[in-house]
Amino acid sequence: METLEIKDLHVSVKDDDTQKSKEILTGVNLVMHTGEVHAIMGPNGTGKSTLSETIMGNPHYQVTQGDILLNNESLLEKPVDARARAGLFLAMQYPAEIKGITNMDFLRAAINARRPEKQPIAIKDFLAQLDEALSILNMTEDMAARYLNEGFSGGERKRNEILQLLMIKPTFAILDELDSGLDIDALQVVSKGVNHVMGPNFGTLMITHYKRILKYIHPDQVHVMMGGRIVKSGDAKLADRLEDEGYAGLRDELGIHVNLVDSEV
């Protein structure tokens, strides 16, 4: 069993224009193991995406306090590519478009980055894996030949992120708002892909606004974030309650003084 641990994590972001730092995360604590599904819910602007990008190692975010540990080893000094090779994966909300690189070339390079330099994956094995992954996601073969995310619709991009997840087989995957911009059919397909990689050697952290996706990917634990930290954790029922009462209800119950960006109920 492997463990990803977030300890008292404080993160600031520097505004590109004003050069002022603003603290977004104010002490996040979270422990997750392989074999578990965690969901983080929370209102807009509360730092959910900051948390996922910081775990992955996006240089835009500065850790000012606390630690991120994979199997008790700190990841803070490691750049993003080393974290990825150590087993982390982030399905991004807004993946970059890169013209000139085909999906297929990219996937192969990503797989080979995890293998010894002299032992790249055999083409035959690669294609077999790719075929299987494409069929799980109802994707056609021409997706593999297209340039990376270029001209992809919102739904295609999400699928493509999960295609990478299926091919790369990480230890811990963070799925940042996988459900946003997906219709019901696409949501089911994408969830099917995630469920396919589930198992004792894989852990997931889902970031979401809605309960909707939790119908397809069942969480063991649900955490609620407000004001840059986790304010409540519970089982799947917590998500039901949020759906009924909104985030404001929980905020008032806990006596937290944060402004919810979009709802002042």
Partner: peptide
């Protein structure tokens, strides 16, 4: 960043 986030 995107490319490197996949381990490259």
């Amino acid at each position: 960043y995107y490319l490197m986030s996949r381990g490259l």
